[in-house]
Simulated scan of single mutants.
Amino acid sequence: MPGPVPKRSDQRRRRNEPDGPALVKAEAGKAPTVPRADGSWHPIAKQWFQSLKDSGQAQFYEQSDWLAAGLSTSVVGVRPVDAPFPSRRAQPRFPVPATLPPCHT
């Protein structure tokens, strides 16, 4: 490659300024309360919820994350173990319109 040999990194002058304001660190909140698994949940839902607890990222979860996980698991996990999955041809519980109404913004 033609041209002079570049300067060593300790001899270079930095010309670009950092973007934006300096970082501000917030204090950590109190540790969240992890909800208990409900006994009526489907076994797979219980496994998923337990996997969240055991995850390495669980240390970063906030109270809202645990509540969302509990809500999601309770909605998904209420199907009885012996209940069959609905077929693809099953009718929806609520009528689905053929077209959506126009949006007014």
Rank of each mutant, 00 (worst) to 15 (best):
V24I: 06
S40I: 03
Q11W: 02
G77W: 00
K7I: 10
V34T: 06
P21W: 01
L100Y: 00
I44V: 02
P18D: 00
T73E: 09
F85S: 02
F49I: 03
C103S: 14
P6S: 00
P84N: 01
A22Q: 04
K53R: 15
V96P: 09
S64I: 09
T33F: 05
P92N: 03
K30F: 13
P92A: 03
A26D: 14
I44A: 06
R14A: 02
A90F: 10
D82V: 06
G3F: 09
V78F: 06
H104D: 15
G70K: 12
G3T: 08
T73D: 01
F60P: 01
R14Q: 04
S55I: 02
P92S: 07
T105R: 11
T99E: 14
A69T: 10
A98R: 12
P102F: 03
M1R: 11
N16S: 15
V81P: 07
R88Y: 04
A68E: 11
P95D: 07
L71M: 11
R79M: 07
R36H: 13
Y61P: 06
Q11C: 09
A98C: 06
G77N: 08
V78S: 11
H104W: 14
P35Q: 05
R15H: 03
Q50K: 15
L67W: 08
W48K: 07
R36Y: 05
F85P: 02
S55A: 14
A83T: 01
A90Y: 07
